[in-house]
Design a binder for these strands. Structure first.
Lengths: 287, 287
DNA sequence: GGCATTATATAAGTATTTTTCAAAGATGGC
DNA sequence: GCCATCTTTGAAAAATACTTATATAATGCC
Protein backbone atom coordinates (compact mmCIF):
# COMPACT_ATOMS: atom_id res chain seq x y z
CA UNK A 1 0.00 0.00 0.00
CA UNK A 2 2.98 2.20 0.53
CA UNK A 3 4.45 4.16 -2.33
CA UNK A 4 8.04 3.65 -1.42
CA UNK A 5 9.80 2.30 1.58
CA UNK A 6 10.69 4.43 4.45
CA UNK A 7 14.44 4.13 4.64
CA UNK A 8 14.70 5.92 7.94
CA UNK A 9 12.44 3.46 9.64
CA UNK A 10 14.25 0.61 7.94
CA UNK A 11 17.53 1.84 9.35
CA UNK A 12 16.04 2.09 12.79
CA UNK A 13 14.69 -1.42 12.54
CA UNK A 14 17.96 -2.94 11.43
CA UNK A 15 20.03 -1.00 13.91
CA UNK A 16 20.32 -3.98 16.21
CA UNK A 17 21.38 -6.42 13.51
CA UNK A 18 24.23 -4.28 12.24
CA UNK A 19 27.88 -4.68 13.00
CA UNK A 20 29.72 -2.14 15.08
CA UNK A 21 30.99 0.01 12.23
CA UNK A 22 27.83 -0.16 10.22
CA UNK A 23 25.90 0.94 13.24
CA UNK A 24 28.14 3.97 13.43
CA UNK A 25 27.11 4.73 9.89
CA UNK A 26 23.44 4.27 10.70
CA UNK A 27 23.68 6.52 13.71
CA UNK A 28 25.53 9.21 11.80
CA UNK A 29 22.78 9.18 9.20
CA UNK A 30 19.96 9.24 11.72
CA UNK A 31 21.65 11.98 13.69
CA UNK A 32 21.49 14.30 10.73
CA UNK A 33 19.76 12.94 7.66
CA UNK A 34 19.36 16.37 6.11
CA UNK A 35 23.09 16.84 5.94
CA UNK A 36 23.61 13.31 4.74
CA UNK A 37 21.67 13.75 1.52
CA UNK A 38 24.03 16.51 0.51
CA UNK A 39 27.22 14.80 1.59
CA UNK A 40 29.66 12.68 -0.35
CA UNK A 41 30.43 9.20 0.82
CA UNK A 42 33.74 10.51 2.15
CA UNK A 43 32.11 13.14 4.35
CA UNK A 44 29.65 10.68 5.77
CA UNK A 45 32.43 8.17 6.40
CA UNK A 46 34.36 10.83 8.25
CA UNK A 47 31.34 11.83 10.27
CA UNK A 48 30.70 8.21 11.21
CA UNK A 49 34.42 7.59 11.81
CA UNK A 50 34.54 4.64 9.48
CA UNK A 51 36.00 3.92 6.06
CA UNK A 52 34.25 4.60 2.81
CA UNK A 53 33.77 0.96 1.86
CA UNK A 54 31.90 0.45 5.09
CA UNK A 55 29.40 3.10 4.11
CA UNK A 56 29.08 1.52 0.71
CA UNK A 57 28.47 -1.92 2.17
CA UNK A 58 25.89 -0.43 4.48
CA UNK A 59 24.02 0.98 1.50
CA UNK A 60 24.15 -2.25 -0.44
CA UNK A 61 22.86 -4.27 2.46
CA UNK A 62 20.02 -1.82 2.96
CA UNK A 63 18.76 -1.01 -0.47
CA UNK A 64 20.82 -3.25 -2.75
CA UNK A 65 22.75 -0.53 -4.49
CA UNK A 66 25.35 2.08 -3.82
CA UNK A 67 25.61 5.34 -2.02
CA UNK A 68 24.13 7.69 -4.65
CA UNK A 69 20.97 5.63 -4.88
CA UNK A 70 20.85 5.47 -1.15
CA UNK A 71 20.92 9.24 -0.95
CA UNK A 72 18.01 9.38 -3.35
CA UNK A 73 16.01 6.98 -1.23
CA UNK A 74 16.86 8.88 1.89
CA UNK A 75 15.80 12.14 0.27
CA UNK A 76 12.44 10.67 -0.63
CA UNK A 77 11.95 9.24 2.78
CA UNK A 78 12.85 12.59 4.27
CA UNK A 79 10.43 14.44 2.03
CA UNK A 80 7.42 12.32 2.91
CA UNK A 81 8.62 12.92 6.39
CA UNK A 82 8.96 10.37 9.05
CA UNK A 83 9.65 12.22 12.27
CA UNK A 84 13.07 13.47 11.36
CA UNK A 85 12.25 16.48 13.43
CA UNK A 86 11.12 16.13 16.95
CA UNK A 87 7.38 16.25 16.77
CA UNK A 88 6.85 16.34 20.47
CA UNK A 89 5.59 19.68 21.50
CA UNK A 90 7.97 21.36 23.91
CA UNK A 91 6.82 23.69 26.67
CA UNK A 92 8.60 26.69 25.21
CA UNK A 93 7.45 26.28 21.62
CA UNK A 94 5.92 29.29 19.91
CA UNK A 95 2.29 28.85 18.86
CA UNK A 96 3.38 28.66 15.23
CA UNK A 97 5.77 25.82 15.96
CA UNK A 98 3.10 23.99 17.90
CA UNK A 99 0.72 24.20 14.97
CA UNK A 100 3.33 22.93 12.56
CA UNK A 101 4.22 20.03 14.80
CA UNK A 102 0.66 19.00 15.32
CA UNK A 103 -0.17 19.11 11.63
CA UNK A 104 2.95 17.14 10.79
CA UNK A 105 2.19 14.61 13.49
CA UNK A 106 -1.30 14.15 12.10
CA UNK A 107 0.08 13.51 8.63
CA UNK A 108 2.62 11.04 9.96
CA UNK A 109 -0.06 9.17 11.82
CA UNK A 110 -2.13 8.93 8.67
CA UNK A 111 0.83 7.59 6.73
CA UNK A 112 1.61 5.00 9.39
CA UNK A 113 -1.97 3.86 9.62
CA UNK A 114 -2.09 3.53 5.86
CA UNK A 115 0.90 1.24 5.93
CA UNK A 116 -0.52 -0.96 8.61
CA UNK A 117 -4.15 -1.27 7.52
CA UNK A 118 -4.65 -4.42 5.45
CA UNK A 119 -6.68 -3.83 2.30
CA UNK A 120 -8.56 -7.09 2.44
CA UNK A 121 -9.90 -6.31 5.91
CA UNK A 122 -11.18 -2.97 4.73
CA UNK A 123 -12.84 -4.73 1.82
CA UNK A 124 -14.49 -7.20 4.14
CA UNK A 125 -15.64 -4.47 6.49
CA UNK A 126 -17.14 -2.57 3.57
CA UNK A 127 -18.96 -5.72 2.46
CA UNK A 128 -20.37 -6.28 5.92
CA UNK A 129 -21.47 -2.66 6.31
CA UNK A 130 -23.00 -2.47 2.85
CA UNK A 131 -25.13 -5.53 3.49
CA UNK A 132 -25.98 -4.82 7.11
CA UNK A 133 -29.63 -4.46 8.01
CA UNK A 134 -28.60 -2.01 10.68
CA UNK A 135 -25.32 -0.39 11.72
CA UNK A 136 -24.45 0.69 15.25
CA UNK A 137 -21.39 2.70 16.25
CA UNK A 138 -20.14 2.57 19.84
CA UNK A 139 -17.49 4.82 21.33
CA UNK A 140 -16.61 6.17 24.75
CA UNK A 141 -14.71 9.26 25.84
CA UNK A 142 -12.69 10.69 22.99
CA UNK A 143 -14.16 8.05 20.68
CA UNK A 144 -17.65 9.37 21.35
CA UNK A 145 -17.43 12.20 18.84
CA UNK A 146 -15.85 9.75 16.41
CA UNK A 147 -18.88 7.49 16.66
CA UNK A 148 -21.18 10.46 16.16
CA UNK A 149 -19.24 11.58 13.16
CA UNK A 150 -19.52 8.07 11.74
CA UNK A 151 -23.24 8.20 12.35
CA UNK A 152 -23.45 11.43 10.44
CA UNK A 153 -21.58 10.02 7.48
CA UNK A 154 -23.61 6.84 7.17
CA UNK A 155 -26.80 8.74 7.81
CA UNK A 156 -26.03 10.76 4.70
CA UNK A 157 -25.84 7.48 2.83
CA UNK A 158 -29.43 6.82 3.90
CA UNK A 159 -28.43 3.78 5.88
CA UNK A 160 -30.08 2.53 9.03
CA UNK A 161 -27.45 3.73 11.47
CA UNK A 162 -27.23 4.78 15.11
CA UNK A 163 -24.39 5.88 17.39
CA UNK A 164 -24.32 5.35 21.11
CA UNK A 165 -21.90 6.97 23.51
CA UNK A 166 -23.42 5.74 26.74
CA UNK A 167 -22.22 2.45 28.22
CA UNK A 168 -25.62 1.30 29.40
CA UNK A 169 -27.37 2.17 26.18
CA UNK A 170 -24.61 0.44 24.24
CA UNK A 171 -25.01 -2.66 26.36
CA UNK A 172 -28.76 -2.79 25.89
CA UNK A 173 -28.48 -2.12 22.19
CA UNK A 174 -25.82 -4.81 21.82
CA UNK A 175 -28.06 -7.36 23.49
CA UNK A 176 -30.80 -6.45 21.08
CA UNK A 177 -28.83 -6.99 17.88
CA UNK A 178 -29.44 -9.83 15.46
CA UNK A 179 -27.49 -11.72 12.83
CA UNK A 180 -27.22 -9.39 9.87
CA UNK A 181 -26.58 -6.34 12.05
CA UNK A 182 -23.19 -4.69 12.13
CA UNK A 183 -21.71 -3.21 15.27
CA UNK A 184 -18.64 -1.00 14.98
CA UNK A 185 -16.73 -0.65 18.22
CA UNK A 186 -14.27 2.23 18.36
CA UNK A 187 -11.62 2.16 21.06
CA UNK A 188 -8.18 3.67 21.15
CA UNK A 189 -6.67 1.34 23.71
CA UNK A 190 -8.88 -1.70 23.17
CA UNK A 191 -8.68 -2.25 26.89
CA UNK A 192 -11.74 -0.40 28.12
CA UNK A 193 -13.64 -3.08 30.04
CA UNK A 194 -17.28 -2.09 29.50
CA UNK A 195 -16.74 -1.81 25.78
CA UNK A 196 -15.10 -5.23 25.61
CA UNK A 197 -18.08 -6.68 27.42
CA UNK A 198 -20.43 -4.95 25.02
CA UNK A 199 -18.56 -6.36 22.04
CA UNK A 200 -18.88 -9.85 23.50
CA UNK A 201 -22.60 -9.40 24.04
CA UNK A 202 -23.12 -8.17 20.48
CA UNK A 203 -21.13 -11.07 19.10
CA UNK A 204 -23.18 -13.56 21.07
CA UNK A 205 -26.37 -11.95 19.84
CA UNK A 206 -25.15 -12.72 16.32
CA UNK A 207 -24.08 -9.32 15.08
CA UNK A 208 -20.94 -8.81 13.01
CA UNK A 209 -18.59 -6.89 15.26
CA UNK A 210 -16.08 -4.63 13.53
CA UNK A 211 -13.42 -3.33 15.89
CA UNK A 212 -11.50 -0.20 15.03
CA UNK A 213 -8.86 -0.47 17.65
CA UNK A 214 -5.40 -1.30 18.86
CA UNK A 215 -4.31 -4.63 17.35
CA UNK A 216 -3.43 -7.26 19.91
CA UNK A 217 -5.68 -5.74 22.55
CA UNK A 218 -8.28 -7.79 24.46
CA UNK A 219 -11.10 -6.14 22.52
CA UNK A 220 -9.95 -7.83 19.32
CA UNK A 221 -10.90 -11.23 20.70
CA UNK A 222 -14.56 -10.34 20.46
CA UNK A 223 -14.45 -8.87 16.97
CA UNK A 224 -15.32 -10.49 13.66
CA UNK A 225 -13.10 -8.04 11.83
CA UNK A 226 -10.37 -5.92 13.37
CA UNK A 227 -9.24 -2.77 11.61
CA UNK A 228 -5.95 -2.14 13.38
CA UNK A 229 -4.88 1.33 14.38
CA UNK A 230 -1.84 1.27 16.57
CA UNK A 231 -1.78 2.98 19.89
CA UNK A 232 0.96 5.55 19.61
CA UNK A 233 3.23 5.72 22.58
CA UNK A 234 1.89 8.31 24.91
CA UNK A 235 5.20 9.26 26.41
CA UNK A 236 4.46 12.91 26.60
CA UNK A 237 1.35 14.59 27.89
CA UNK A 238 1.76 17.21 25.20
CA UNK A 239 1.52 14.55 22.53
CA UNK A 240 -1.36 15.55 20.33
CA UNK A 241 -4.22 13.13 20.23
CA UNK A 242 -4.15 12.88 16.50
CA UNK A 243 -5.23 9.27 16.49
CA UNK A 244 -8.80 10.54 16.19
CA UNK A 245 -7.84 11.94 12.84
CA UNK A 246 -6.90 8.48 11.71
CA UNK A 247 -10.18 7.01 12.93
CA UNK A 248 -12.21 9.59 11.09
CA UNK A 249 -10.28 9.10 7.90
CA UNK A 250 -10.68 5.35 8.09
CA UNK A 251 -14.40 5.76 8.63
CA UNK A 252 -14.46 8.12 5.66
CA UNK A 253 -12.90 5.36 3.60
CA UNK A 254 -15.44 2.83 4.83
CA UNK A 255 -18.34 5.14 4.11
CA UNK A 256 -17.04 5.89 0.65
CA UNK A 257 -16.52 2.18 0.01
CA UNK A 258 -20.10 1.48 1.02
CA UNK A 259 -21.33 4.32 -1.14
CA UNK A 260 -19.56 2.87 -4.16
CA UNK A 261 -21.01 -0.57 -3.46
CA UNK A 262 -24.46 0.90 -3.23
CA UNK A 263 -24.12 2.16 -6.74
CA UNK A 264 -25.29 5.16 -8.67
CA UNK A 265 -28.90 5.22 -7.56
CA UNK A 266 -27.65 6.74 -4.32
CA UNK A 267 -26.18 9.74 -6.01
CA UNK A 268 -29.70 10.98 -6.52
CA UNK A 269 -30.31 10.62 -2.82
CA UNK A 270 -27.18 12.62 -1.98
CA UNK A 271 -28.13 15.39 -4.36
CA UNK A 272 -31.50 15.61 -2.67
CA UNK A 273 -29.80 15.92 0.71
CA UNK A 274 -27.57 18.71 -0.48
CA UNK A 275 -30.53 20.51 -1.94
CA UNK A 276 -32.38 20.25 1.33
CA UNK A 277 -29.82 22.31 3.23
CA UNK A 278 -29.41 24.91 0.49
CA UNK A 279 -32.27 27.12 1.59
CA UNK A 280 -30.79 27.56 5.06
CA UNK A 281 -27.77 29.15 3.47
CA UNK A 282 -26.82 32.46 2.03
CA UNK A 283 -25.86 32.22 -1.61
CA UNK A 284 -22.24 31.83 -2.56
CA UNK A 285 -20.59 35.16 -3.21
CA UNK A 286 -19.19 35.56 -6.68
CA UNK A 287 -15.61 36.69 -6.63
CA UNK B 1 5.48 27.48 5.71
CA UNK B 2 6.28 25.13 2.86
CA UNK B 3 9.27 22.90 3.32
CA UNK B 4 11.01 22.79 -0.02
CA UNK B 5 10.39 23.82 -3.55
CA UNK B 6 8.80 21.67 -6.09
CA UNK B 7 11.52 21.16 -8.70
CA UNK B 8 9.18 19.57 -11.17
CA UNK B 9 6.95 22.60 -11.23
CA UNK B 10 10.01 24.82 -11.46
CA UNK B 11 11.17 22.95 -14.54
CA UNK B 12 7.77 23.28 -16.13
CA UNK B 13 7.75 27.00 -15.46
CA UNK B 14 11.16 27.61 -16.97
CA UNK B 15 10.60 25.40 -19.96
CA UNK B 16 9.94 28.35 -22.22
CA UNK B 17 13.02 30.30 -21.18
CA UNK B 18 15.42 27.46 -21.87
CA UNK B 19 17.65 27.02 -24.86
CA UNK B 20 17.10 24.24 -27.35
CA UNK B 21 19.43 21.70 -25.77
CA UNK B 22 18.48 22.49 -22.23
CA UNK B 23 14.88 22.08 -23.14
CA UNK B 24 15.71 18.62 -24.39
CA UNK B 25 17.12 17.91 -20.96
CA UNK B 26 14.04 19.28 -19.23
CA UNK B 27 11.76 17.24 -21.41
CA UNK B 28 13.73 14.08 -20.87
CA UNK B 29 13.46 14.59 -17.12
CA UNK B 30 9.76 15.37 -17.16
CA UNK B 31 9.09 12.44 -19.45
CA UNK B 32 10.40 10.03 -16.87
CA UNK B 33 11.44 11.58 -13.58
CA UNK B 34 11.45 8.23 -11.81
CA UNK B 35 14.14 6.89 -14.08
CA UNK B 36 16.08 10.11 -13.90
CA UNK B 37 16.69 9.91 -10.19
CA UNK B 38 18.43 6.59 -10.68
CA UNK B 39 20.42 7.58 -13.74
CA UNK B 40 23.92 8.92 -14.05
CA UNK B 41 24.52 12.19 -15.79
CA UNK B 42 25.76 10.22 -18.80
CA UNK B 43 22.55 8.21 -19.12
CA UNK B 44 20.39 11.28 -18.87
CA UNK B 45 22.54 13.10 -21.40
CA UNK B 46 22.13 10.17 -23.77
CA UNK B 47 18.39 10.05 -23.21
CA UNK B 48 18.11 13.77 -23.89
CA UNK B 49 20.55 13.53 -26.86
CA UNK B 50 22.82 16.21 -25.50
CA UNK B 51 26.26 16.33 -23.96
CA UNK B 52 26.96 15.87 -20.28
CA UNK B 53 28.03 19.45 -19.61
CA UNK B 54 24.67 20.62 -20.92
CA UNK B 55 22.94 18.57 -18.28
CA UNK B 56 25.28 19.98 -15.71
CA UNK B 57 24.60 23.55 -16.77
CA UNK B 58 20.92 22.85 -16.65
CA UNK B 59 21.24 21.72 -13.05
CA UNK B 60 23.30 24.72 -12.04
CA UNK B 61 20.88 27.16 -13.57
CA UNK B 62 18.00 25.48 -11.82
CA UNK B 63 19.19 24.74 -8.31
CA UNK B 64 22.67 26.26 -8.20
CA UNK B 65 24.61 23.04 -7.89
CA UNK B 66 25.48 19.94 -9.83
CA UNK B 67 23.73 16.87 -11.01
CA UNK B 68 23.92 14.76 -7.83
CA UNK B 69 22.25 17.44 -5.77
CA UNK B 70 19.72 17.91 -8.49
CA UNK B 71 18.80 14.24 -8.28
CA UNK B 72 18.26 14.64 -4.56
CA UNK B 73 15.96 17.60 -5.09
CA UNK B 74 14.08 15.79 -7.78
CA UNK B 75 13.67 12.77 -5.55
CA UNK B 76 12.19 14.91 -2.80
CA UNK B 77 9.89 16.68 -5.14
CA UNK B 78 8.80 13.34 -6.52
CA UNK B 79 8.10 12.00 -3.06
CA UNK B 80 5.99 14.86 -1.76
CA UNK B 81 4.46 14.63 -5.13
CA UNK B 82 2.42 17.13 -6.93
CA UNK B 83 -0.76 15.15 -7.34
CA UNK B 84 0.37 12.72 -9.99
CA UNK B 85 -2.44 10.41 -9.15
CA UNK B 86 -6.00 11.39 -9.42
CA UNK B 87 -7.37 11.66 -5.91
CA UNK B 88 -10.98 11.68 -6.90
CA UNK B 89 -12.61 8.43 -6.06
CA UNK B 90 -13.94 6.71 -9.15
CA UNK B 91 -16.97 4.46 -9.14
CA UNK B 92 -14.99 1.41 -10.18
CA UNK B 93 -12.14 1.80 -7.72
CA UNK B 94 -11.21 -1.19 -5.60
CA UNK B 95 -11.67 -0.68 -1.86
CA UNK B 96 -7.91 -0.56 -1.42
CA UNK B 97 -7.60 2.24 -3.95
CA UNK B 98 -10.41 4.14 -2.28
CA UNK B 99 -8.65 3.95 1.06
CA UNK B 100 -5.38 5.15 -0.39
CA UNK B 101 -7.03 8.05 -2.14
CA UNK B 102 -8.92 9.16 0.92
CA UNK B 103 -5.86 9.03 3.12
CA UNK B 104 -3.81 10.93 0.58
CA UNK B 105 -6.56 13.50 0.17
CA UNK B 106 -6.65 14.00 3.93
CA UNK B 107 -2.92 14.60 4.02
CA UNK B 108 -3.10 17.03 1.12
CA UNK B 109 -5.84 18.95 2.84
CA UNK B 110 -3.76 19.19 5.99
CA UNK B 111 -0.81 20.48 4.01
CA UNK B 112 -2.93 23.07 2.23
CA UNK B 113 -4.52 24.26 5.44
CA UNK B 114 -1.12 24.56 7.04
CA UNK B 115 0.05 26.79 4.24
CA UNK B 116 -2.95 29.05 4.47
CA UNK B 117 -3.38 29.40 8.23
CA UNK B 118 -1.64 32.54 9.49
CA UNK B 119 0.44 31.94 12.59
CA UNK B 120 -0.38 35.21 14.24
CA UNK B 121 -4.11 34.50 14.13
CA UNK B 122 -3.56 31.16 15.80
CA UNK B 123 -1.52 32.92 18.46
CA UNK B 124 -4.27 35.43 19.03
CA UNK B 125 -6.92 32.73 19.20
CA UNK B 126 -4.83 30.84 21.73
CA UNK B 127 -4.49 33.98 23.83
CA UNK B 128 -8.21 34.60 23.78
CA UNK B 129 -9.04 31.00 24.67
CA UNK B 130 -6.45 30.78 27.41
CA UNK B 131 -7.84 33.88 29.10
CA UNK B 132 -11.52 33.21 28.50
CA UNK B 133 -13.76 32.90 31.50
CA UNK B 134 -15.84 30.46 29.54
CA UNK B 135 -15.53 28.81 26.12
CA UNK B 136 -18.44 27.74 23.94
CA UNK B 137 -18.21 25.71 20.75
CA UNK B 138 -21.02 25.85 18.21
CA UNK B 139 -21.38 23.58 15.21
CA UNK B 140 -24.21 22.23 13.09
CA UNK B 141 -24.49 19.13 10.93
CA UNK B 142 -21.10 17.66 10.21
CA UNK B 143 -19.53 20.30 12.43
CA UNK B 144 -21.52 19.03 15.40
CA UNK B 145 -19.14 16.18 16.18
CA UNK B 146 -16.25 18.60 15.66
CA UNK B 147 -17.67 20.90 18.33
CA UNK B 148 -18.13 17.95 20.65
CA UNK B 149 -14.62 16.79 20.05
CA UNK B 150 -13.39 20.29 20.83
CA UNK B 151 -15.40 20.20 24.02
CA UNK B 152 -13.75 16.94 24.97
CA UNK B 153 -10.28 18.33 24.40
CA UNK B 154 -10.76 21.53 26.37
CA UNK B 155 -12.60 19.66 29.06
CA UNK B 156 -9.45 17.61 29.58
CA UNK B 157 -7.62 20.86 30.14
CA UNK B 158 -9.99 21.57 32.99
CA UNK B 159 -11.41 24.62 31.28
CA UNK B 160 -14.96 25.90 31.57
CA UNK B 161 -16.16 24.69 28.20
CA UNK B 162 -19.44 23.67 26.60
CA UNK B 163 -20.44 22.57 23.11
CA UNK B 164 -23.86 23.11 21.59
CA UNK B 165 -25.13 21.48 18.44
CA UNK B 166 -28.69 22.74 18.56
CA UNK B 167 -29.55 26.03 16.86
CA UNK B 168 -31.95 27.21 19.53
CA UNK B 169 -29.66 26.34 22.39
CA UNK B 170 -26.79 28.05 20.61
CA UNK B 171 -28.88 31.15 20.12
CA UNK B 172 -29.91 31.31 23.74
CA UNK B 173 -26.39 30.63 24.94
CA UNK B 174 -24.98 33.29 22.62
CA UNK B 175 -27.40 35.86 24.01
CA UNK B 176 -26.24 34.99 27.49
CA UNK B 177 -22.54 35.49 26.92
CA UNK B 178 -20.51 38.33 28.40
CA UNK B 179 -17.31 40.15 27.62
CA UNK B 180 -14.49 37.80 28.56
CA UNK B 181 -16.29 34.77 27.14
CA UNK B 182 -15.04 33.08 23.98
CA UNK B 183 -17.37 31.62 21.39
CA UNK B 184 -15.94 29.37 18.70
CA UNK B 185 -18.17 29.02 15.68
CA UNK B 186 -17.35 26.12 13.39
CA UNK B 187 -18.81 26.17 9.90
CA UNK B 188 -17.58 24.62 6.69
CA UNK B 189 -19.34 26.95 4.31
CA UNK B 190 -19.67 30.01 6.54
CA UNK B 191 -23.01 30.58 4.88
CA UNK B 192 -25.34 28.76 7.26
CA UNK B 193 -27.83 31.45 8.22
CA UNK B 194 -28.76 30.53 11.80
CA UNK B 195 -25.12 30.21 12.75
CA UNK B 196 -24.30 33.60 11.26
CA UNK B 197 -27.11 35.11 13.31
CA UNK B 198 -25.83 33.39 16.42
CA UNK B 199 -22.36 34.77 15.86
CA UNK B 200 -23.80 38.26 15.53
CA UNK B 201 -25.73 37.86 18.77
CA UNK B 202 -22.68 36.62 20.66
CA UNK B 203 -20.60 39.48 19.31
CA UNK B 204 -23.19 42.01 20.42
CA UNK B 205 -23.31 40.45 23.86
CA UNK B 206 -19.60 41.18 24.11
CA UNK B 207 -18.07 37.75 23.63
CA UNK B 208 -14.94 37.20 21.54
CA UNK B 209 -16.11 35.25 18.53
CA UNK B 210 -13.57 32.97 16.88
CA UNK B 211 -14.71 31.65 13.53
CA UNK B 212 -13.21 28.49 12.13
CA UNK B 213 -14.58 28.76 8.66
CA UNK B 214 -14.35 29.54 5.00
CA UNK B 215 -12.50 32.85 4.55
CA UNK B 216 -14.51 35.49 2.76
CA UNK B 217 -17.82 34.00 3.81
CA UNK B 218 -20.58 36.08 5.44
CA UNK B 219 -19.89 34.47 8.79
CA UNK B 220 -16.48 36.12 8.97
CA UNK B 221 -18.11 39.54 9.27
CA UNK B 222 -19.31 38.70 12.75
CA UNK B 223 -16.07 37.21 14.01
CA UNK B 224 -13.33 38.83 16.09
CA UNK B 225 -10.80 36.33 14.77
CA UNK B 226 -11.16 34.19 11.67
CA UNK B 227 -9.15 31.01 11.34
CA UNK B 228 -9.50 30.36 7.63
CA UNK B 229 -10.04 26.88 6.29
CA UNK B 230 -10.87 26.92 2.63
CA UNK B 231 -13.91 25.25 1.28
CA UNK B 232 -12.59 22.63 -1.10
CA UNK B 233 -14.39 22.47 -4.38
CA UNK B 234 -17.11 19.93 -4.05
CA UNK B 235 -17.15 18.94 -7.67
CA UNK B 236 -17.68 15.29 -7.04
CA UNK B 237 -20.14 13.68 -4.70
CA UNK B 238 -17.55 11.03 -3.96
CA UNK B 239 -15.15 13.65 -2.69
CA UNK B 240 -14.28 12.68 0.84
CA UNK B 241 -15.26 15.17 3.46
CA UNK B 242 -11.81 15.36 4.85
CA UNK B 243 -12.18 18.98 5.83
CA UNK B 244 -13.32 17.75 9.22
CA UNK B 245 -9.89 16.30 9.67
CA UNK B 246 -8.44 19.75 9.21
CA UNK B 247 -10.83 21.26 11.74
CA UNK B 248 -9.96 18.70 14.35
CA UNK B 249 -6.26 19.14 13.81
CA UNK B 250 -6.55 22.89 14.08
CA UNK B 251 -8.50 22.53 17.30
CA UNK B 252 -5.82 20.15 18.53
CA UNK B 253 -3.29 22.86 17.87
CA UNK B 254 -5.39 25.44 19.72
CA UNK B 255 -5.88 23.15 22.70
CA UNK B 256 -2.19 22.38 22.86
CA UNK B 257 -1.36 26.05 22.61
CA UNK B 258 -3.68 26.79 25.51
CA UNK B 259 -2.20 23.95 27.50
CA UNK B 260 1.28 25.36 27.05
CA UNK B 261 0.10 28.82 28.08
CA UNK B 262 -1.48 27.39 31.17
CA UNK B 263 1.90 26.09 32.23
CA UNK B 264 3.18 23.10 34.11
CA UNK B 265 0.71 23.10 36.98
CA UNK B 266 -1.79 21.59 34.58
CA UNK B 267 0.32 18.56 33.92
CA UNK B 268 -0.59 17.35 37.37
CA UNK B 269 -4.22 17.74 36.48
CA UNK B 270 -3.80 15.72 33.30
CA UNK B 271 -1.99 12.94 35.10
CA UNK B 272 -4.86 12.75 37.55
CA UNK B 273 -7.31 12.44 34.67
CA UNK B 274 -5.36 9.64 33.08
CA UNK B 275 -5.15 7.85 36.39
CA UNK B 276 -8.88 8.12 36.85
CA UNK B 277 -9.66 6.05 33.77
CA UNK B 278 -6.99 3.45 34.44
CA UNK B 279 -9.13 1.26 36.67
CA UNK B 280 -11.78 0.83 33.99
CA UNK B 281 -9.14 -0.82 31.84
CA UNK B 282 -7.48 -4.15 31.51
CA UNK B 283 -3.76 -3.98 32.06
CA UNK B 284 -1.47 -3.62 29.08
CA UNK B 285 -0.25 -6.96 27.83
CA UNK B 286 3.48 -7.43 27.93
CA UNK B 287 4.87 -8.64 24.65
C1' DG C 1 29.00 39.31 -44.40
C1' DG C 2 31.81 39.88 -40.48
C1' DC C 3 31.99 40.47 -35.62
C1' DA C 4 30.30 39.50 -31.10
C1' DT C 5 27.80 36.71 -28.32
C1' DT C 6 25.77 32.71 -26.89
C1' DA C 7 25.18 27.77 -26.99
C1' DT C 8 27.04 23.30 -27.24
C1' DA C 9 30.34 19.62 -27.40
C1' DT C 10 34.84 17.42 -27.08
C1' DA C 11 38.37 16.40 -24.28
C1' DA C 12 40.91 16.72 -20.18
C1' DG C 13 40.99 16.88 -15.41
C1' DT C 14 39.15 16.12 -10.88
C1' DA C 15 36.35 14.08 -7.62
C1' DT C 16 33.70 10.34 -6.12
C1' DT C 17 32.34 5.79 -5.80
C1' DT C 18 33.18 0.98 -6.12
C1' DT C 19 35.86 -3.08 -6.07
C1' DT C 20 39.61 -5.80 -4.65
C1' DC C 21 42.30 -7.72 -1.36
C1' DA C 22 44.66 -8.37 2.79
C1' DA C 23 44.80 -7.75 7.63
C1' DA C 24 42.54 -7.60 11.96
C1' DG C 25 39.09 -9.22 14.80
C1' DA C 26 35.46 -12.25 16.25
C1' DT C 27 33.49 -16.91 16.64
C1' DG C 28 33.19 -21.61 17.40
C1' DG C 29 34.92 -26.22 17.80
C1' DC C 30 37.85 -29.26 20.00
C1' DG D 1 42.76 -22.01 25.65
C1' DC D 2 44.31 -22.48 21.09
C1' DC D 3 43.74 -23.03 16.28
C1' DA D 4 40.86 -22.86 12.19
C1' DT D 5 37.34 -20.48 10.13
C1' DC D 6 34.40 -17.00 9.23
C1' DT D 7 33.28 -12.16 9.53
C1' DT D 8 34.34 -7.47 9.65
C1' DT D 9 37.04 -3.67 8.33
C1' DG D 10 40.05 -0.42 5.95
C1' DA D 11 43.88 0.76 2.51
C1' DA D 12 44.68 1.10 -1.99
C1' DA D 13 43.57 0.61 -6.71
C1' DA D 14 40.30 0.64 -10.37
C1' DA D 15 36.27 2.27 -12.34
C1' DT D 16 32.94 5.44 -12.78
C1' DA D 17 30.89 9.79 -12.65
C1' DC D 18 31.13 14.65 -12.45
C1' DT D 19 33.13 19.17 -13.47
C1' DT D 20 35.99 22.45 -15.70
C1' DA D 21 38.49 24.31 -19.51
C1' DT D 22 38.72 25.00 -24.05
C1' DA D 23 37.34 24.76 -28.75
C1' DT D 24 33.86 24.89 -32.20
C1' DA D 25 29.43 25.78 -33.97
C1' DA D 26 25.34 28.48 -34.04
C1' DT D 27 22.90 32.63 -33.58
C1' DG D 28 22.02 37.29 -33.70
C1' DC D 29 23.36 42.03 -34.45
C1' DC D 30 25.26 45.75 -36.87
Amino acid sequence: MNKHEDIIRKIQERLSTLSKSERKVAEAILADPKTTIHSSIAKLAARAQVSEPTVNRFCRSLIGSGFPDFKVSLAQSLATGTPYVNLNVEPDDAPGAVTTKIFEAAKNNLTRAQEILPEHLISRAVDVLAQARRIEFYGLGASGPVAQDAHHKFFRLNMPVVAYIDILVQRMAAAGTHPGDAVVVISYTGRTLPLIETARVAREAGASVIGITNPGSPLTEHCSIVLPIEETEDTDIYTPMSSRIVYLTLIDALATGVLLKRGPEFNAHLKKLKQSVQDTRLPKIEK
